[in-house]
C-alpha cells in the first residue's frame, strides 16, 4: 500500500515538471520586457542590465527554467516582483485562508447535497424529487460570481446582517498560530472572534459550495437509486428490514463510495471557483493573490501559484484513487 502510494507520488513529479515547462514557455510568449515590472521604463539601459542580471533574466530561457526547477525542488520558487519577498512565503501565508474556504464549501455541499439526493432517490418521481432536481440544475448552472454579488446585495446591503467581504474585522487581534482563523480563535478561547470569522466565512463558503451541492445532489440520487436496485437490498427487504434502514444502512452506505469520488473529482473545480469567489469577496487566499499577480504581471508569483494549485489538484486525485482502492477491494492496485 505504502509502496503504491510512493510510486504514484513519484509518477506525479514528471507531470509537474512538464506543467512548469508549459507555464514557462507561455511566459516566454508574453509581450513586453519583464524587467519593466521591476524598474521604471525610463531607467537607463545600464540600470536595466544590472536588474536583469540580478534577477537572472539575462540568461537563456532554458537555463532560467533549469535554475527554476532546481530551486523549486528545494521549495524555493524565487522572489515575487511585486512584493519583493520569496514566493513560497507569500503563498504559505495565504494558503490557510483558501483551505478554510474550500473545506467550509465542501462541508456545505455535502451537508445539503447528500440528504437532498437521498431524499430524491427514496421518493423518485415525487415533488421532492422534482425540487431536488430543479435545485441541483440551478446550482450547476449558477455563475458563482453572480450569486456572490446577489448575496452581497441581499445580506450585506439590504438586510445588513453579514459582512460584504474580507476574512476578519479590522483589529480582531487573534494571533495567527495555524493561520486557520477558526482554529486560532478556538485556541485563543476567543468566542467573539470565532463568531466574527464564521460570519465572514458564511457567504463565500455558500457561494463556492453551490455548484458542488448541485453535482453532489445529482450523483447521490443516481448512486442511491442504483444501490436500491441491487440484490442485497431485495434480500434485506425480504428479511423484513425497515425501509428507512434499507435506505440508510444498505443503499446509502454503498452509494457513498461514488459520492466521495465525486467530491474528489470536484476539488479542481472548487479550486478554480475559489479564485473567483475570493476575488468577489476580497478573501485573502491564494486565488485572489493569483489574480493580483496576473494584473501586476508578477511572473514568479504566477508560476509558483500555478504549480501549487496543480500540485494540490494532483495530490487530491491521488488521495481519491487511494481511498477508492482502500474502500473497494475489487479494484486491484497495479
Amino acid at each position: 500500500m505504502l509502496l503504491y502510494f510512493i510510486k504514484r507520488l513519484a509518477g506525479a513529479v514528471p507531470v509537474l515538471i512538464v506543467v512548469s515547462g508549459i507555464i514557462f514557455a507561455l511566459m516566454q510568449l508574453a509581450p513586453g520586457d519583464a524587467v519593466t515590472m521591476l524598474i521604471s521604463d525610463e531607467a537607463s539601459e545600464a540600470d536595466k542590465a544590472r536588474i536583469r542580471e540580478a534577477w537572472g533574466l539575462d540568461r537563456p530561457p532554458f537555463i532560467q527554467f533549469l535554475n527554476f526547477l532546481g530551486n523549486a525542488l528545494t521549495g524555493d520558487f524565487g522572489m515575487s516582483f511585486r512584493y519583493k519577498m520569496p514566493v513560497i512565503e507569500i503563498v504559505m501565508d495565504r494558503l490557510p485562508a483558501t483551505i478554510e474556504l474550500a473545506v467550509a464549501a465542501t462541508l456545505i455541499a455535502v451537508g445539503v447535497g447528500v440528504p437532498l439526493g437521498v431524499l430524491a432517490a427514496a421518493r423518485p418521481g415525487t415533488a421532492w424529487d422534482a425540487i431536488a432536481s430543479a435545485f441541483s440544475f440551478a446550482g450547476i448552472s449558477m455563475p458563482n460570481f453572480w450569486l456572490g454579488i446577489l448575496l452581497i446585495l441581499l445580506f450585506a446591503g439590504y438586510f445588513n446582517i453579514l459582512p460584504s467581504g474580507g476574512r476578519e474585522p479590522w483589529g480582531l487581534g487573534v494571533e495567527h498560530v495555524t493561520g486557520f482563523l477558526i482554529i486560532d480563535s478556538i485556541l485563543a478561547g476567543r468566542w467573539d472572534a470565532l463568531g466574527a470569522a464564521l460570519k465572514h466565512l458564511a457567504l463565500p463558503a455558500i457561494v463556492l459550495g453551490t455548484n458542488m451541492t448541485g453535482i453532489i445532489t445529482q450523483m447521490t440520487r443516481a448512486q442511491v437509486l442504483d444501490a436500491l436496485r441491487e440484490d442485497f437490498v431485495m434480500t434485506a427487504r425480504s428479511k423484513g428490514v425497515s425501509e428507512a434502514r434499507v435506505l440508510w444502512r444498505h443503499a446509502f452506505r454503498n452509494a457513498m463510495v461514488g459520492v466521495v469520488t465525486i467530491i474528489g473529482l470536484e476539488f479542481g473545480t472548487l479550486l478554480s471557483g475559489a479564485m473567483i469567489v475570493e476575488t468577489v469577496f476580497a478573501w485573502p487566499g491564494i486565488g485572489s493573490l493569483l489574480i493580483t499577480g496576473i494584473s501586476s504581471r508578477d511572473f514568479p508569483l504566477i508560476i509558483g501559484l500555478v504549480l501549487v494549485y496543480t500540485g494540490m489538484f494532483i495530490v487530491m486525485n491521488l488521495l481519491i484513487d487511494l481511498f477508492y482502492t482502500l474502500i473497494d477491494p475489487r479494484i486491484r492496485m497495479n
Binding site: V15, L16, L26, L29, A30, G268, T269, L290, V306, Y309
Partner: peptide, 15 residues
Amino acid sequence: SFPPLMLAIAIVAFI
C-alpha cells in the same frame, strides 16, 4: 492536471 480554468487563465494572462 491543471485545475479547470487555470490553464486558460495562464494562457490569457501571459499572451
